[in-house]
Design a protein around this nucleic acid. Structure first.
Lengths: 203, 203
DNA sequence: TCAGATACGGTACTCCATGTACCTTAAAGA
DNA sequence: TCTTTAAGGTACATGGAGTACCGTATCTGA
């Protein structure tokens, strides 16, 4: 769509180009991913769904993995604000719930599909790692740092491997069980049986 | 090969059958897996390498995943004895090192390949989960139980989620980093910064 | 306003892998 | 020996990745 001189959108040209077409392709890829997962993602179907052909796709992305990654990027929401409930338990549980929501959403499904396929594609793995930096230590260290400042935890607990234990356990649930979603009780268990005892025990 | 009446092996028939052929196929599959990984495993090449054809394979396994899993099973060594160094730290480190050796071996590579592909094949995932019961809680609970008996850890620590934290963190290293092997220092860090503080802190 | 450059649409192709079909023939067993 | 079983050989149907080529709609700049 292009605005005509009056500022109203006009029907515009019948043949899409550039960003317009790119968005249509990504949208189609996302729909396909939601329906069939990454393993079932085919360039032909994406092209057909987007109302174009494979050329338009390969002109933009080098291969299927690149398209999948781009589609996943479309889904990932912008950084959310850090939770600040005033106590460590609430913050950690909130972060876990967010991660859980993400992992059990279509986006998480796509992410796990991509991770599975990234085994043999180091470049894709690298990009994925950058993308999932949210699960990295930064957020967790910040939240844990606040708890230390409040005196809820000893300073020795401020260690990347310690800080991220909870989300690592959650991720493990998704990998080993094939569960569609992890029940909230498991999250609480991770927090109460592992995370808090660990953090406090490091005094 | 068949023994002749004198008990000595004779050259035998030129066309292998049954278990003989099955072993040859599995061996070929393992060699292929070692060279190209699961993603590069093709039925045609396995057949050719085994000196047979795809029919013989499909008569035994329903599809590529089943063949891959069977090959992986060939590699997995029988249960080892539990370590018993007399102190929890030594036992845990030994278990971690074993897991690390396994994960960084060709077998581990295959396992991770299979896990990646199992996403869309619940049946395969289920079989894999059974197969990797070694990483399950049994072993870890036993080792931890001994530590409790020695007074090294409080009884509250005897919790499946607590007991297996170390190996879960190790697995996470393999998944998020694409590392070929995890350095021993990381294992020690997992034990000293996370596992032992957690176990002891649960008092 | 018009010419040239760009990039989309359509189609056809190569390559390669999975999985199946069918037939011939070697080996095992009664 | 005769029958049954399973291996070998080959061809094929199916389907997806990625490439090539051409005509043409759209954009841009003179």
């Amino acid at each position: 769509m292009v605005d005509d001189p009056t500022g109203r959108p006009r029907s515009g040209p019948t043949r899409r180009r550039g960003a317009d077409l790119e968005q249509a392709i990504l949208r189609a890829a996302l729909d396909e991913l939601a329906e069939t997962g990454y393993a079932g993602l085919t360039m032909d179907r994406v092209a057909k769904r987007a109302g174009t052909n494979k050329n338009a796709i390969y002109r933009r992305w080098t291969n299927r993995a690149a398209l999948g990654l781009a589609a996943y990027r479309e889904l990932v929401v912008a950084d959310q604000e850090l939770p600040d409930t005033g106590e460590l338990r609430g913050d950690v549980l909130e972060l876990l719930r967010r991660a859980n929501r993400h992992l059990s959403s279509p986006a998480g499904d796509i992410l796990r599909s991509l991770l599975g396929s990234a085994r043999d594609d180091p470049q894709l793995l690298e990009q994925l790692r950058e993308q999932t930096a949210d699960a990295g230590s930064g957020t967790w260290l910040t939240v844990l740092g606040r708890a230390v400042a409040r005196g809820e935890a000893p300073p020795e607990a401020l260690h990347p491997r310690v800080a991220t234990v909870a989300v690592v356990l959650l991720r493990n649930e998704y990998i080993t069980r094939g569960t569609p979603t992890v029940p909230d009780g498991v999250l609480a268990e991770i927090v109460d049986e592992v995370y808090l005892p660990l953090v406090r025990g490091r005094g």
